[in-house]
Computed example of a mutant assay.
Amino acid sequence: MQYYIGIDLGGTNTKIGILDSRGNIIDSGFIKTDSNNMDRTLNLIWEKAKELLKKSEVGIEYIVGIGIGIPGPVVNKSIVTFFSNFNWERNVNLKREFEKITNIETRIENDVNIIAQGEAIFGAAKNKSSSITVAIGTGIGGGIFVEGKLISGNSGVGGEIGHIKLEKNGKLCGCGQRGCFEAYASAKSLIKEAQERLELNKNNMLYKEIGGNLEILEAKHIFDCAKKGDQFSLELVEYESDYLAMGIGSLLNVINPEVVVISGGISLAGDILLRSVREKLKLYAMPPALENFEIVLGELGNEAGIKGAVALFY
Rank of each mutant, 00 (worst) to 15 (best):
A185F: 11
A226E: 01
V261H: 09
S56D: 01
L244A: 00
G137W: 00
E160K: 06
E235S: 10
S35P: 01
Y62I: 10
I79T: 13
L94W: 14
G153A: 01
Q117I: 14
F293W: 05
G11A: 06
V92E: 09
L283N: 14
G65K: 01
K165H: 07
E182W: 03
L200W: 15
G212F: 02
N256F: 03
V80D: 00
L190P: 07
I151R: 02
F122W: 13
G156F: 08
H221W: 05
I18D: 00
L198G: 04
D230N: 08
E215F: 06
F86H: 08
Y3A: 14
F122D: 07
L297W: 06
K188L: 12
L297T: 15
N201Q: 06
N85S: 14
I25K: 08
P288Y: 05
S263A: 14
T81P: 07
G148V: 07
G142R: 01
K32F: 15
E303R: 12
G59P: 08
K168F: 10
T106Y: 04
M205P: 13
E291P: 01
I140S: 04
C180Q: 08
I114F: 09
V310I: 03
V64C: 12
I248V: 03
K128C: 15
E209R: 15
M205N: 15
A183L: 02
K165V: 13
Q177K: 14
S35M: 06
H221D: 15
A289W: 03
K168A: 11
E119R: 09
G59A: 13
G301T: 13
L200F: 13
G141H: 07
F145K: 02
I132R: 10
V157E: 12
